[in-house]
Simulated scan of single mutants.
Amino acid sequence: MTRIIQTFAEISDQYDVAFVDLWGCMHNGLRAFPDAVAAMQGFRARGGKVVLVTNAPRARGPVAVQIDRLGIPDDAWDSIATSGDSARAAMFRGAVGEKVWFMGEAHDESFFEPLAIIDNPVPVRKVPLDEAEGIVCCGPFDPHADPDVNRPEFLYAKTKGMKLLCANPDIVVDRGESREWCAGALARLYTEMGGESLYFGKPHPPIYDLARRRYAALDGAVSDPRIIAIGDGIRTDILGAQGEDIDSLFITGGLAAAETKTTDQPDPAALDDLVAAEQVTPTYAIGFLR
């Protein structure tokens, strides 16, 4: 049974570290949520640690720059673990070959920057699809276009036996009031067509391993921390927490606002219906992180 809470402070003293999603929890793609920032600042003031765990298909450096620009200050978090970092490590170990077809926008090009932690990295280079050994997908070329527009290219790639490395398992995000497709929607389509997609972000284990390592590297980290995952994606943040056997706080006013009938708080019956339909049970729920 999911418990609906009013503020994170009600339960925060039970945890040493929070694995906190960014988009939909801390910001909406345009600006930070002041109440969410204050909640994380308060948690840290009481001794907690905040690891931002995001399916962004970029390294943590560019993500830190982005969230600062959106209004999330340094004192609201301790470290960052990104799907991009986890996926980049796999790419430079040769997961999809040396010659790759890149899917994404210009701001995703940082995905190919060298990764110092990999010994003897594969010399990956971007090539046209007909020369590629695999696909690196950071997102669609046009985030508003239906993923089906990629069917011809995916059919060709599937017949060539290419693997698709998905740098962001999210299906959609809401940028302000506008909903956009993410790399996860393309990877899902490729898999449905019979191709093989490789995932590294939430809800899959590699990003949680990275988040734990980022926490362990912090001053004051404890050896067996009490962890809570916070996020608005029931099939990413909450399912991932369930798979890792850690508690979770579901932010219902994000991606699931309509399904949970959230204005300030979720409608209890609507929340129960969503939990039953998804067969994923958050430990706690709240309308917005505060």
Rank of each mutant, 00 (worst) to 15 (best):
M1C: 03
M1D: 02
R3V: 10
I4S: 00
F8N: 01
S12T: 00
Y15K: 06
V17Q: 02
F19T: 09
G24R: 04
C25K: 02
M26F: 03
H27R: 07
N28F: 02
N28V: 07
G29V: 04
L30S: 11
R31M: 05
P34M: 10
A38W: 02
Q41D: 00
Q41N: 00
G42C: 06
F43N: 08
G47P: 11
K49H: 12
V53P: 01
T54N: 02
N55H: 06
A56F: 11
R58N: 02
R60N: 00
G61V: 13
V63P: 06
A64R: 15
V65C: 09
I72N: 10
D74F: 09
D74A: 14
W77R: 11
D78M: 10
D78R: 10
I80P: 08
T82C: 13
S83Y: 02
S83I: 13
S86G: 08
S86N: 09
A87V: 09
M91N: 07
R93A: 11
G97R: 10
H107K: 14
S110W: 07
S110V: 15
F111R: 13
F111I: 15
F112T: 12
L115S: 02
L115A: 03
L115T: 06
A116G: 04
N120I: 05
P121G: 02
V127S: 00
A132H: 04
G134I: 05
G134A: 00
V136E: 00
C137N: 01
P140F: 01
F141P: 02
F141W: 11
P147K: 05
P147A: 08
T159R: 15
K160P: 08
L165W: 04
P169Q: 03
P169M: 05
I171P: 02
V172G: 05
G176C: 07
E177N: 13
E180F: 01
A183G: 09
L186K: 05
P206H: 01
I207A: 05
R214E: 07
R214G: 00
A217D: 11
A217Q: 10
G220P: 03
G220Y: 00
V222H: 04
R226Q: 10
A229G: 12
A229R: 12
I230L: 09
G231R: 11
G233K: 15
I238W: 09
A241Y: 08
D245Q: 14
D247P: 04
S248T: 11
L249Y: 14
F250A: 05
G253A: 12
G254T: 14
A256D: 09
A257Q: 15
A258V: 14
E259P: 13
T262S: 08
T263A: 12
Q265A: 10
P266V: 09
P268R: 08
P268S: 06
A269F: 09
V275P: 09
V275Y: 05
V280W: 05
V280K: 07
A285C: 13
G287S: 08
L289N: 03
